[in-house]
């Protein structure tokens, strides 16, 4: 069920777009939805990040993945346990660009003995890297449809992505890598029992959605084929805020576009927000300098003053003495004598 529902949902989206265009709603799917989706995406993204920004971080909680700053003759791991801003920047850079924390991924396995073994597991890191970068290449490459004239990097990217010169239209390598990587990420969730156990519909839905986008795009480019000039008129029109639909555009284009719009709308409300979240996570973006800089909890009530032990003992000394607790400073002997004498005097 956790797999079936998201799958049916994506099929439903495809059906909605297909039927919608059949009944003449092409302008809605081609013009209204893309604008709405972009607004929801940007608005939702900003809202989410601002919400995170408003959340106080009560403790300095960087994850320490290496030797912390210590005595001068102990070598610090400057990237995995940074104590300076420069170190944090380096750590974030490697995290965002190379997924360093995934590279450290380990796989626990039990073998004869029984013995527990932790082995290096780089598959997730490798395919996550392939997935994200091929997705980036594809998004940037799509700028050929949204800009006129095109920025210089688009033709360069086109050249390298189509360098195999297979078929016409030329096969893009990134298309193959993306589909392969998404399939790996899906199969990983299904085959590994531990991962399957923790996987939710919200994990499968984005995978199916992105796979749907990739497959409709591939279908559109290599098999069904569409009038690219008519499409570019629409997409450049969208970018220049004066969209018009001219010529015959196949429904496969609207299905592809509708899935992309769904992705944009879904993005800010889902796990996909790790795009912004990676920059906002305190376990990564804080320096491990607890012993150099005092971190003050923003929740602290300013009316509550610091209370030292000596002040505490001053306040409760008599009761502590009565209970026989050890004291830093004994009760003054002068006061004790009259207190002890008075009752006897009264009795006399």
């Amino acid at each position: 069920m956790k797999i079936l529902y998201p799958f049916v949902a994506v099929l439903g989206l495809i059906l909605i777009a297909f039927l919608g265009v059949q009944v003449g709603l092409a302008p809605v799917f081609g013009i209204v939805f893309p604008y709405l989706a972009l607004l929801v995406f940007i608005g939702g993204f900003i809202n989410k990040v601002v919400g995170w920004g408003k959340s106080p971080v009560p403790f300095r909680i960087p994850t320490t993945c290496g030797q912390a700053n210590s005595l001068p003759w102990i070598k610090q791991n400057q990237i995995d346990c940074p104590s300076t801003t420069a170190g944090v920047v380096a750590r974030m850079f490697f995290e965002v660009v190379l997924f360093r924390s995934l590279f450290r991924n380990t796989q626990a396995s039990v073998y004869d003995g029984p013995k527990l073994r932790y082995g290096s597991s780089k598959y997730l890191w490798l395919f996550a890297l392939l997935f994200h970068y091929s997705f980036l290449v594809i998004v940037v490459r799509h700028m050929r449809l949204f800009t006129d004239p095109m920025p210089f990097f688009v033709p360069v990217l086109e050249f390298f992505d189509g360098i195999l010169q297979i078929g016409a239209p030329t096969l893009y390598v990134a298309d193959l890598i993306l589909v392969g990587a998404v399939l790996f990420l899906f199969v990983r969730r299904v085959l590994l029992p531990a991962i399957r156990y923790i996987s939710l519909p919200a994990d499968y839905f984005p995978l199916f959605l992105i796979l749907g986008i990739a497959l409709t795009g591939i279908l559109m480019r290599y098999y069904l084929r569409v009038d690219i000039i008519a499409i570019k008129q629409l997409t450049v029109g969208l970018a220049t805020l004066s969209p018009t639909i001219t010529g015959e555009i196949g429904s496969i284009f609207y299905i592809h576009l509708f899935l992309v719009c769904t992705l944009l709308v879904y993005f800010p409300f889902s796990k996909l927000m790790h795009m912004g979240g990676v920059f906002m996570s305190p376990t990564r973006n804080m320096a491990n300098n607890n012993r150099m800089v005092r971190h003050i909890n923003p929740w602290n009530d300013p009316s509550i003053k610091p209370h030292s032990y000596m002040a505490y003992e001053d306040e409760f000394r008599e009761f502590m003495a009565e209970a026989g607790l050890p004291l830093e400073k004994e009760l003054p002997a002068k006061e004790e004598a009259p207190v002890a004498d008075e009752p006897t005097a009264e009795k006399e």
Binding site: F41, K54, F146, A239, L241
Partner: peptide, 30 residues
């Protein structure tokens, strides 16, 4: 907002990148 300077800078960069086709086309002869 905590660290608002850094966060707003980041968000501005993000929005500029996302809206690339919109501002890039301005003035271009279509």
């Amino acid at each position: 907002m905590y660290d608002s300077g850094k966060i707003i800078t980041g968000l501005v960069i993000f929005v500029i990148m996302i809206t690339f086709p919109i501002w890039y086309n301005v003035g271009g002869a279509e």
